[in-house]
Nucleic acid binder design. Structure first.
Lengths: 219, 219
DNA sequence: GTTTTCATTTTGAGTGTTCAAAATATAGGG
DNA sequence: CCCTATATTTTGAACACTCAAAATGAAAAC
């Protein structure tokens, strides 16, 4: 039975793999995202290789083997289902569910997870708009673009919010930047690193490129 | 923040303290109930003392300090609320919830726990009939007697089932031995170590003293 | 008052995970 | 081609928890 440390490494490596669309993940990204020193990530990578979860190529990085990918997806499923439960059923705030799910995902059994899935009505997306992998380990990956790349005048629908940071999520909710909402890009100011947008039915406001980058949309 | 190991030790020590109605808990009972070697229990007791949870008197045992008692009660609260949730909301079987709750109790935050408590309607007893400590750390202790000590002809109500063992719980449920059920003692056979009982509305059957001991009742 | 028995403690070691700091590769710029 | 900046690896140590097995203490049996 893999420890929660192992589970965290594999989940994070999976997320980085998907994000970069690149099989090999350099050690730096791992140590940074898990907040451990580089040396720790290296020694852990060797352990994970010995246990068959991934391949470790010195000075290049790691790449998930099928077993590691499967476990990573499974943890992601747990995480996202739990987040959904915390918001839908217990009414927790969008901005505080990540840390909670981070703990619970390692403690919940397969059996309880499936019951929870039933109870929630087998949702396909979590509250952030991220897809929930199926029990079989399948996760549909739609190529969504970031708000930051959208031209003036365009109307788009928010697909997901790609940041777990508390304060950013609070901001997003306060401006009604939620999955499913329609928004229009009123103007772009290249020099000011900002754009002006309007969420349907709300007041227009401006948002910096850095923040807009975290908002994924579909046309 | 106490580790789940610490939490487990304190919860178990609390349970033994309550059961024996004796402040000092000998090391043997601890190592047995947590399934660790005696040496491990001793060295852990020293750590727990250093951290202020309890007093350790060599060759006598440990006794909880207020902090340890409080944390123990808190873990017990988590455990029993989670068991209730697993049965009431997710429909898990009575006999399988103990192990599940055993894991989750260390991962759930205070905040989520209180939301869960609200969601469940602030139950006072878990599915086994055990009292759930309040948020403030109060647990009412009714002196209930065991079925094994009941005389022939007596009618009693089941208060709780004092065993977490899967197979025993399965047996109990199959015979409708559940908290709240009324039962009548039809006869006692001292020599046979068994008694014949009838659950209200069901067929009579006999139960050994060993099993009857685990069933707590009120007159 | 010895001896036996049983519970408990000590000792020495191992596992998994982590860090800080020193050593080493690799890629790019001069 | 060398030199520097950066990413990565190695080393040595620590922490929390665990075990097996030997040593000790205290109570019970003789």
């Amino acid at each position: 039975m893999p420890s929660s440390t192992v589970e965290n490494y594999l989940k994070q490596i999976l997320l980085i793999t998907l994000e970069r669309e690149e099989k090999v993940v350099p050690m730096g990204l791992i140590s940074e995202s898990l907040d451990v020193t580089p040396g720790t990530a290296t020694s852990m990578a060797k352990n994970l290789e010995k246990e068959g979860w991934l391949c470790y190529e010195p000075r290049r990085g790691v790449s998930l083997k099928p077993a590691g990918r499967k476990l990573g997806l499974n943890i992601l499923r747990r995480h996202r289902l739990l987040e959904t439960f915390l918001v839908e059923t217990l009414g927790l705030d969008w901005s505080e569910i990540h840390e909670e799910a981070e703990e619970l995902e390692h403690a919940i059994s397969e059996k309880v997870l499936e019951r929870l899935d039933d109870f929630l009505g087998r949702p396909r997306h979590d509250p952030h708009g991220h897809p929930i992998p199926t029990k079989g380990g399948v996760m549909q990956r739609k190529k969504s673009r970031s708000l930051v790349g959208c031209k003036e005048g365009l109307s788009v629908v928010i697909e997901s919010i790609d940041d777990q940071e508390r304060n950013f999520l609070k901001f997003a909710r306060s401006r009604h930047l939620l999955p499913g909402k329609k928004i229009k890009i009123l103007s772009r100011e290249e020099e000011a690193d900002a754009m002006e947008i309007r969420v349907e039915g709300k007041m227009p406001f401006s948002i910096g490129f850095e923040a807009a980058r975290k908002i994924l949309v579909s046309v």
